[in-house]
């Protein structure tokens, strides 16, 4: 893991991605936090980061 807290830009990026994914999955706004699919997508995007895969 990165052993660092998320930057403000990263928090903002994923905070906007979550509702966007929710919209694309055609979910009601109140279903976002409980949507397995949205959080799966977020994790998919997050854990594919090169920062997790490469140690130069």
């Amino acid at each position: 893991m990165t052993r660092r807290p998320p930057s403000a830009a990263e928090l903002e990026r994923f905070a906007s991605l979550a509702p966007e994914l929710s919209r694309l999955h055609k979910l009601a706004p109140d279903k976002l936090l409980s949507s397995r699919q949205v959080w799966k997508d977020l994790a998919h995007s997050l854990f594919n980061r090169k920062e997790f895969l490469y140690f130069p």
Partner: peptide
């Protein structure tokens, strides 16, 4: 893996931004 190309692109865009920052 994503059947909806818009979902795939949204995820890839977020990933790309993260990776550019890391690069």
């Amino acid at each position: 893996a994503d059947k909806d190309p818009k979902i795939q692109r949204a995820k890839l865009d977020a990933l790309l931004q993260q990776d550019r920052q890391f690069l």
